[in-house]
């Protein structure tokens, strides 16, 4: 299973990953529309929130728009999606997002763009068995 993994201890909170993600998919340079979210935790530490490809959302989606691809990544069929946002509300880790102005929910597809710009390797693509 391909997944974006994380080592939060290495995160310095630069949020380059967020900007990269939002720019890549939504031409949003503010990082607001990123599906990886960096938030300040305690003691100058940072939390990294991103989809772990657990697949629970595929059991919630009423139209089978969310499915597990061959490499284990959960992807959204935008044509099948009816914008109910059940997946957004029911994601255990709050890693599927609704962005104002975008009708379809957004989630990480483990493309690795964010990992490529991370200066500390706090996020990285893994292939899990």
């Amino acid at each position: 299973m391909k997944v974006l993994s994380k080592n939060e201890a290495l995160c310095i909170g630069c949020k380059k990953c967020m900007v990269e993600c939002a720019t890549t998919y939504y031409k949003d340079e503010t990082g607001d529309k990123s599906v990886i979210r960096i938030t300040e935790s305690t003691n100058d530490k940072f939390d990294i929130n991103v989809c772990n490809q657990c697949g629970y959302c595929t059991t919630i989606c009423p139209t089978q728009a969310l499915t597990i691809s061959k490499n284990g990544v959960i992807t959204l069929n935008r044509k099948k999606c009816v914008e109910c946002y059940a997946c957004v509300g029911f994601c255990d880790t709050l890693s599927i997002h609704y962005f104002t102005g975008e009708r379809k929910p957004s989630k990480c597809i483990a493309c690795g763009k964010c990992a490529a710009v991370c200066p500390t390797s706090a996020i990285f693509i893994e292939n899990l068995e």
């Binding site: 109910c84 946002y85 059940a86 957004v88 509300g89 029911f90 255990d92 609704y98």
Partner: peptide, 9 residues
């Protein structure tokens, strides 16, 4: 809607 989905969750 999302608020209620989350509440149900």
């Amino acid at each position: 809607g999302i608020r209620l989905h989350r509440e149900l969750h």
